[in-house]
Amino acid sequence: MSDDVIKAEGLTKVFNHNLVAVDHISFSVRQGEIFGFLGPNGAGKTTTINMLITVLKPTEGHAYILGSDIVKENMEVRNSIGVVPQEYTADEDLTGYENILLCADLYGIPRNIAKKRAIELLELVELTPFKDKRVQTYSGGMRRRLELACGLINRPKLLFLDEPTLGLDVQTRTATWNYVRRLKKEYGMTLFMTTHYLEEADALCDRIAIIDHGKIIVTGTPDELKESLGGDIITLSIQKDVDITGLVKKIPHVKEARKENGSYLIKSENGEVTAPLIIEALRKEGHVVTKLSLTKPTLNEVYLQYTGRSMRDAEESPEAVFAQRATMRRARQ
């Protein structure tokens, strides 16, 4: 058997016989990697996660988690995964410690083991001083960490994180990234996460899949995806108003050059090496470069390239909007 932690084959979900939310997607997640699942609102991210965590049944296709079929062997799947939902699901009236014990009960973990693990997990997410305080009094970051602890109570081999840093401030977000990295490094855990923050995906994920309209458009490492855009962009201006595109295209590594609004846009691999070559070549021909800038493509450009620039306004259900607003509101408390 392969060491794929998640293997999806033609996974499809159709709602009400006509709304295709997820359309025959296939992908695999390898042991020990952080896999990012990106896409606009309504693209099918949540539906895919819900199928993988056995909350929804696929209409068509199969998926295997650690070798178990998500439909036929759903109990095995549920035992081996952890889920950290986008929402804050902890009970406000209970303490952090009690909330973790409640999660333990859902997995049928005996009390004596559950108590030991709860103490360890509270230590891991740095909530030990607040363990006997009601969740009501927790800040957004503390709630998020508590959710993380709950998701780890059954010692999962695979952890699902849905928008783990939604609405959090920069400090808490950075801290959350560190937890995620630790889980991967120290516990060899595999993580499947969704996010809207592309710099987060870039910083954390080993591989990324971009999904839109229910289909996976592209999969790869963040660097591969950036390179797929055709390299860096060099923008330059010269003194004289003559066309130099033909000249520039002859320089090694330059893939594309065009004139736009009085300056030249040049696409090239390894822009920092190419830029001096361009200046040198132009100087030999008697041109004076007045301005030059170099842009490395970010995941933002990759994302917009693949999903387009149009906003997805009407595609979210009122339920999802409510949940998201509630999460953001509490994150900022």
């Binding site: 909350v55 109990m75 995964i81 889920v83 939902p85 699901t89 859902l106 997995y107 049928g108």
Partner: peptide, 8 residues
């Protein structure tokens, strides 16, 4: 949804 993802 969270409870549904556990073996309850």
């Amino acid at each position: 949804n969270k409870v549904l993802s556990t073996p309850v």
